[in-house]
């Protein structure tokens, strides 16, 4: 157990962002963005470079103030006290090089209001959990890049925050540590904590996120359940693994076939269910029947492309 479960928060939004806007030098970097984060979810904040993700995160973290709009954490306007409920892993990692692993963890924990005895105990448990207990007295400058990133991750969760904001948390990690981190994120979600994941890696978003918010040129362009968004952008086609003869199918515009497999592109107005019905009637043995949804990567490119037009 890397954290204690969160209790007594119901389904109230952990974070509410309402109409925040930020301009630098007369350029609107974030333009009227609103979304909320619910307890126990991994939320993807995605968008191309320069879209306004980092500025949004900095406003959530109270590092910079929005020009208009507001940010509420646990129902309260963001203040010094509410900051202790948030953990932040910036994209570019930074720790004091001359401090030891333990000193780094304790200093950040103390700034987040954790009492020293508890911080020491938590730090010990977390180091044990990620297999770095032996390195507790090493200076940060002696660690490998991946190791110091793990430590940075631990500084983000040492104070048991309800909300964590992680900017590209898997960059520089080897596959073993990537899996370890993913497991920890799921564990945190299971305890009712929430994670905002800002990343360019769409496969990670698909694997981890429950809901997403996509930002492009400072504006929100996609927001909602990942499944719902994918279904909204699905192509009207099905994938099929089968045995037997397909024959002519009503409502299929084109088909791409390989021995024992096919992708059927449906005509407008034809549903996957109607095709399945025809196949069953013909006695075709179906090993796989899957409504095709485009990978998030394609949706991302499509949405960014549309907003460029």
């Amino acid at each position: 157990m890397i954290d204690r479960p969160v209790t007594g928060q119901g389904n109230k939004a952990l974070l509410e962002i309402s109409g925040i806007t930020k301009s630098f030098d007369h350029t609107r970097v974030v333009d009227n963005i609103s979304f909320d984060i619910r307890p126990g979810e991994i939320f993807g904040l995605i968008g191309p470079n320069g879209a306004g993700k980092t500025t949004t995160i900095r406003m959530v973290m109270d590092i910079i103030k929005p020009d208009t709009g507001q940010v509420k954490v646990l129902g309260e306007i963001l203040s010094e006290a509410t900051k202790d409920n948030i953990g932040y892993l910036p994209e570019e990692r930074g720790l004091y090089k001359k401090l030891t692993v333990m000193q780094s963890l304790l200093y950040i924990a103390s700034l987040k209001g954790v009492e020293e005895g508890r911080a020491r105990q938590r730090a010990g448990e977390l180091l044990e959990h990620v297999g770095m207990a032996a390195h507790r007295n090493k200076k940060v400058e002696e660690l490998s890049r991946g190791m110091s990133q793990l430590i940075q991750f631990l500084t983000t969760i040492i104070h048991e925050p309800r909300l964590m904001i992680m900017d590209e948390p898997f960059a520089n990690l080897d596959p073993v540590n990537t899996e370890l981190l993913k497991e920890m994120l799921f564990e945190l979600r299971g305890q009712g904590r929430s994670v905002i994941l800002s990343t360019h890696r769409m496969n990670e978003v698909e694997e981890l996120c429950d809901r997403i918010f996509m930002i492009n040129k400072g504006r929100g362009v996609l927001y909602g359940e990942l499944k719902e968004i994918k279904s909204r952008y699905r192509r009207n086609s099905v994938f099929l693994d089968y045995q037997g003869e397909l024959g002519e199918l009503k409502g299929v515009a084109t088909r791409r076939e390989q021995p024992g497999a096919a992708e059927l592109i449906l005509e407008d107005g034809t549903t996957p269910g109607q095709i399945l019905e025809q196949l069953v009637r013909r006695g075709v043995t179906i090993n796989r029947y899957e409504v095709s949804t485009p990978p998030l990567h394609d949706i991302f490119l499509q949405v960014v492309g549309e907003s460029h037009e």
């Binding site: 973290m61 590092i63 948030i86 570019e92």
Partner: peptide, 17 residues
């Protein structure tokens, strides 16, 4: 300078005023 270069400043400012 060090905190700015290694971005620690962001963690500090997200914890204190």
């Amino acid at each position: 300078g060090e905190e700015k270069e290694n971005r620690l400043i962001e963690i500090l400012l997200s914890s204190v005023s």
